[in-house]
Design a protein around this nucleic acid. Structure first.
Lengths: 200, 200
DNA sequence: ATTATCTATAGATCTATAGATAATGC
DNA sequence: ATTATCTATAGATCTATAGATAATGC
């Protein structure tokens, strides 16, 4: 039963949004176009009136995923909040609305040039975000701290998602959260100062 | 042209070794049984005389991959050496002989119970290895430091492999290497002591 | 005769295309 | 008449199975 005049652009966006969720949730190749179209209430046949290829959808869906990260970062005002929320069990359990860089970190290796380019842009945006919040002095130190923090976050989140032991999964998130928040150079020197002031 | 009596066990091991390489290199589902058998100089038909299913090969290949990590860790005697070699460009460029936990961190989410169980065992073994070398005092601190270090290493390695900018890729490896080796709690307090001694 | 491997193929996907269909808007 | 979507299908995989074949070892 065709339903014309119901805004083609809306349908297009709906397909992209669904793909953006499912790709992060299950991986780019673990879901078929038929499944995605069906979730949108459509059939496979119509797909190529919206996209010239599967790859085109992958790129659009990835870019759409990044919007979730942009919205999230707007609500984050401190380094501690960023790390705590990124490494929360809630984020681990909901890859479909979470960080696309983490969710697709293994997948993109075998993707097209366009996908990898979009991915690299998003990595760079994330590094800038974490650098801007990083407790470090000077542009270079901030940049390096951003790379360090983002790497630790991605590694911990993906490890916690991949193992099948819930306790170990939680322990990894907690340990990395703790060491990132407590044991960062600037924070440590802050603590030292407090200790000194207290003992004086 | 069949070649009987040439040790079935040898052929079996050869298939497993090839799979162990290709799965790490390209991902578990980006390579077909036909391709693997062909690289072993065989045809697909014979596959099921060696394995009851594709999944069985995935498990055996994963376990075989872990041997590379065990051999590697035997030659590692210090924390600094572990981090430096793990985050080397050479490791980044040769996933086929490198850490299977990193190479398959995204892939295992959609794999069978057996694969995920083997993966979890290997994560645990790696955590123990990094914990044993970690510059931290006390069993708990060592355990947490191991999780922290391994997460940062996996995140940095996989990010460096996924992006398409060689310079950024190298910068990430370098920054994480530097901050892990220089800025670890125990090392920092060591440095502080040296500074104090020098100024005294 | 046994056994490892081969050829051939069934059955299940999945991407992509061709042409039909039905609701809107002139 | 136009246009968005549908049904149907071609062509390319990929896993798994059935039965044939050829080299060894009795």
């Amino acid at each position: 039963m065709p339903k014309p005049r119901l805004q083609k652009a809306d349908t297009h966006a709906r397909i992209v949004d669904i793909a953006a969720k499912r790709f992060r949730e299950r991986g780019i190749h673990e879901i078929s176009l038929a499944d995605l179209m069906s979730e949108a209430g459509l059939t496979v046949g119509g797909f190529y009136k919206h996209f010239s290829s599967r790859d085109e959808l992958v790129v659009e869906a990835f870019v759409a995923s990044c919007q979730d990260a942009v919205s999230w970062s707007r609500g984050v005002s401190s380094y501690q909040q960023a790390v705590t929320e990124y490494l929360a069990e809630n984020h681990r359990d909901h890859p479909e609305t979470g960080c696309a860089v983490a969710a697709l970190v293994g997948d993109v290796k075998s993707e097209s040039h366009s996908v990898r380019a979009a991915y690299t842009r998003e990595v760079r945006r994330n590094l800038e975000f974490f650098s801007s919040l990083a407790p470090a002095d000077g542009a270079l130190a901030k940049r390096q701290a951003g790379m360090f923090i983002f790497s630790a976050c991605i590694g911990a989140l993906e490890l916690s998602r991949s193992i099948d032991d819930p306790k170990l999964s939680r322990d990894i998130l907690r340990a990395v959260r703790k060491l990132l928040v407590d044991e960062t150079p600037a924070r440590r020197s802050l603590k030292r100062q407090k200790r000194r002031r207290a003992s004086a």
